[in-house]
């Protein structure tokens, strides 16, 4: 019998209303395994508001606050202030928002919370669109992807604009801890959630969470797609602690992005040229990440171990 590699305790309960094969549901399950029960969570309008709490039930074994879609950052700052006023120190405050509630509508409150050094964790579960309302494009939708508001017909070929780089925006605020997580890599996900739990100051996790109906793939492929997203270099796993980059899943040769693209109906209209462009972009992104890791690495010997006497 293999040992469990992630905690056995479940803080997300069965019976929730997520679609079969839901990436965000698995992300929540893994996140709470890392954070544990001494957690208070704020969720804005997003898939998880309807997944988690069909009245009068709750799928979460922790305290939960519902808030408007633009307000997650502000609401977790308020929760932290309230806990501080009550001198409750061992409870973590977490915001759990979709890409719309983070990178679009929620961006101001997120920036405010990061800039004020709020002692809280902000998690963006990125299903790359407004999926709960029926698949509309968001700023996190990748370039060339079909959505209902970026159709593929005649000269139109899906979303024209590039995906917004939320990690770069967050890192420009110099958070205490920021990391990318992927539910297809549960041990890495839980370890980073635990690290975020134990850090102080503003923390951010960017989770890529495949969405079967929105990305148009069969529900059993959720994990395979997640693995491919990372192994192609499209969504590398790394963490940034006090400005120091560390890649947590090293890649030898990058898998062809075509393997990731062709599993998804939202890219069905792509030509080989589109795949080539994406490959190039992914390669540049990966090289940039390697460079950042090299440049921010702390010196092995911060000071010369022995003063060298002048000859």
């Amino acid at each position: 019998m293999a040992k469990l590699t992630i905690p056995a305790e479940e803080w997300m309960y069965r019976g929730h209303a997520a679609c079969p094969g839901c990436g965000p549901a698995l992300a929540m399950r893994l996140l709470l395994k890392g954070l544990g029960p001494r957690t208070v969570m704020s969720i804005p309008a997003c898939c998880w508001t309807v997944i988690g709490t069909p009245y009068p039930t709750t799928a979460l074994g922790i305290a939960l606050l519902d808030n408007p879609i633009e307000s997650t950052g502000a609401s977790i700052a308020g929760l932290r202030a309230a806990l501080d006023a009550l001198r409750i120190e061992d409870v973590r405050v977490v915001g759990f928002a979709g890409d719309g509630g983070t990178a679009d509508i929620g961006l101001q409150a997120l920036s405010g919370m990061l800039e004020r050094r709020t002692d809280a964790i902000f998690v963006m579960y990125d299903n790359e669109g407004y999926m709960n309302t029926g698949v509309q494009r968001s700023s996190a939708t990748p370039q060339g992807a079909w959505t209902t508001t970026t159709p593929v017909e005649g000269p139109r070929r899906g979303k024209r604009e590039a995906k917004k780089e939320i990690m770069s925006i967050v890192l420009a605020h110099h958070p205490a801890y920021a990391a990318t997580v992927n539910p297809a890599f549960p041990e890495d996900f839980v370890r980073k959630a635990e690290k975020a739990r134990d850090a102080r100051g503003p923390r951010f996790l960017h989770a890529l969470t495949p969405c079967p109906p929105g990305w148009k793939f069969s529900s059993e492929e959720t994990i395979e797609l997640g693995r491919l997203a990372t192994e192609t270099g499209l969504f590398p796993l790394y963490e940034v602690e006090d400005g120091v980059y560390r890649i947590t899943r090293r890649l030898g040769t990058l898998k062809p992005v075509d393997e990731y693209v062709r599993l998804q109906g939202r890219f069905r209209h792509w030509e080989p040229e589109d795949v080539r462009e994406l490959s190039e972009e992914v390669r540049r992104g990966w090289e940039r990440l390697l460079r950042l890791e090299r440049e921010t690495a702390p010196a092995v010997f911060p000071k010369p171990p022995v003063a060298i006497a002048a000859a």
Binding site: G15, G52, T57, T58, A59
Partner: peptide, 17 residues
């Protein structure tokens, strides 16, 4: 107090299958 207190485990989602 809290609004939703019943764990969702009581909801059967088998019919989705």
């Amino acid at each position: 107090g809290p609004i939703a207190t019943v764990p969702s485990r009581s909801i059967r989602t088998a019919a989705w299958r």
